[in-house]
Design a protein around this nucleic acid. Structure first.
Lengths: 244, 244
DNA sequence: GAGTGGTCTAGACCACTTA
DNA sequence: AAGTGGTCTAGACCACTCT
């Protein structure tokens, strides 16, 4: 099965083999992969070499491992849609899944140089920070840190505790319809806080999306940083204003 | 420096330390990091543990390694901008860097089921495939595979060899102004072809962007898949039609 | 030839899950 | 208690770069 010659590393070959087997349905989503010791025996490779191969599959989002239990085949990625006007809840409902959210924390800070630029306010101005963890089908999906000017949204901390859709709240309480103006996409690896909150290992990449929202007049309403589980989603951006 | 207790893995601690040192400018971009054996001595850790730590930094795009030479601190990410009307060349020039492109291959295939859906043509229709490798400052940056209907763009293979801007070509020869309609973003790890073309190791993630372009009437003009080096770029999407 | 990173092996101990 | 994945060590050989 595994060739020692040919210059292709054993772990690359093995991850290729497993990748193919998963793609072809030999291992179904949710099913356990053979254990590391079993694969080690079967392919006559050291357990560490097996682990290198499985590490790749983890980073690709093809499998996930649970300590003490085993390695399992992942479900296919969730196609998460984003346009000028989209909210998490509707996007997730659209693809037939069930969304959920939890407000982890809310507090106030001074803007400082970077946030003052992002929000177009003075650096001494106060900023409300909201940390929200969002779930799809009870699985942690992304972690959002939102920044809003305290002056423009007084008492938002009190209001947010009741409702979980920030956009609904802005509309109802402040009469503002927020629209996405720009978003940047970047890849990284999880920090320890990401690993805890999103329940992923250090090998699973995170997709970092930094977005600015404006109101209909073009004033900046919100700046937010969302960290998505890279193994769970692909994000589709729609450039035609309206459509989802 | 490294604590054996506290439950945090040594390699996590070390990658944290190095991360911080790089961020704080102790190691400048382009400079070589201490070698693995040196770090092994300095932190009293096995070379494999050192390698785990460095592997993380590689995936984060903070450092890159050259076999036989060493590990070096990477430059900061290139902020690549994308909007409804953007071309690679102008985007790169905008940030003061020098773009370049090479046509790797061009050939014709039958659409098949997936492409026929993407391009809104019959599955028996012919499709022209263009493979283009793009560079920023002589460094491979992304690899694009473009799909266009052969019927709608006769002789495009002959034309493309002269000019490298596909959008220019569509405009000049076919009188079509292509606009980005939607793009999906996804993270993965490089396949062996990616590693060769983009000159990256297996640890550096790739950012996969799949885009559909339409003409002013709303007909689909092009479907393309671009694989960006995840260590080199962050991609900014602008939702206001015009702006870059 | 000396030094670098890339791969593989062998063996150990740990924390966690399951039964 | 047995089995799982997570981490660390020690030692080996390779291909590559530099001189």
């Amino acid at each position: 099965m595994i060739s020692r010659e040919g210059g292709i590393a054993c772990y690359q070959q093995l991850s290729g083999i497993l990748h193919k087997q998963i793609e072809e349905g030999e291992f179904r989503p949710g099913k356990q992969l053979p254990t590391e010791t079993e694969l080690s025996r079967r392919y006559k490779l050291n357990r560490h070499t097996i682990r290198q191969a499985i590490g790749r599959l983890q980073s690709e989002g093809l499998v996930y491992t649970i300590k003490g239990k085993g390695t399992f085949v992942a479900n296919s990625k969730i196609s998460y849609k984003v346009s000028r006007k989209t909210r998490f809840t509707t996007s997730v409902l659209d693809v037939g899944l069930s969304p959920d959210a939890r407000l982890l924390d809310s507090y106030e800070i001074s803007a400082g140089s970077e946030l003052s630029r992002k929000l177009n306010i003075k650096s001494s101005d106060k900023v409300v920070v909201l940390e929200i963890l969002r779930f799809v089908n009870k699985i942690p999906f992304c972690h959002t840190t939102s920044f809003l000017s305290s002056d423009r949204f007084p008492d938002i901390q009190a209001h947010i505790k009741g409702s979980f859709s920030l956009y609904e709240l802005l509309k109802k309480h402040y009469g503002i319809e927020a629209m996405r103006a720009s978003s940047s996409f970047e890849v990284s690896l999880p920090e320890s806080s990401d690993m805890d909150m999103l329940q992923i290992s250090s090998k699973v990449p995170v997709l970092i999306v930094k977005s600015t929202s404006k109101n209909s007049k073009g004033d900046i309403v919100e700046y937010c940083i969302t960290r998505f589980r890279g193994d769970l989603c692909s994000i589709t951006v729609n450039f035609n204003g309206e459509g989802r």
